[in-house]
Design a binder for these strands. Structure first.
Lengths: 73, 73
DNA sequence: AGGTCTATTTTTAGTTA
DNA sequence: CTAACTAAAAATAGACC
């Protein structure tokens, strides 16, 4: 990444800012994949800074996806 | 993106190759966020080309995350 | 079908406000 | 803390193999 190459490993000094940015970017990616290819996709992230998990596209959507998993996995 | 700016919308002519690449990239992003910030994260994608959903990091991991959702959402 | 290459877009770490 | 800016890294559409 910019300014210095961040090694891809557990970064102890990962900042909240970095987490926020990446999470935002991740959800955007999910949105892009879903929209671009018209596929069902969902993502759930448990940030260390928030008690509630971040869910995309919505808790309902995740539940829908999950119900399918129950039958397939 | 490269060669031409792909409009962010439902692309009827979205190719399987594009889907495969983006899915791969998405999972990588999830991995990066999870590893970099040490957070629990999962992603599920239902590709139109495969009957089984693609799950990250694992069905078990998703279940773990899901159990928490039940209580929070 | 999947891997590689390249040009270009997108993402993003750190800074600054 | 949130947001904008910047420059460098990463992702990626299409071509080619």
């Amino acid at each position: 990444m910019p300014w210095k190459k961040v090694k891809l490993a557990f970064i102890a000094n990962a900042r909240k800012t970095t987490y926020n940015k990446r999470q935002k970017g991740l959800f955007k990616k999910v949105y892009e994949l879903s929209t671009l290819c018209g596929v069902e996709a969902c993502a759930i992230v448990y940030g260390p800074y928030e008690p509630q998990p971040k869910i995309w596209p919505s808790p309902q959507g995740v539940q829908t996806v999950l119900s399918k998993i129950q039958n397939n996995v």
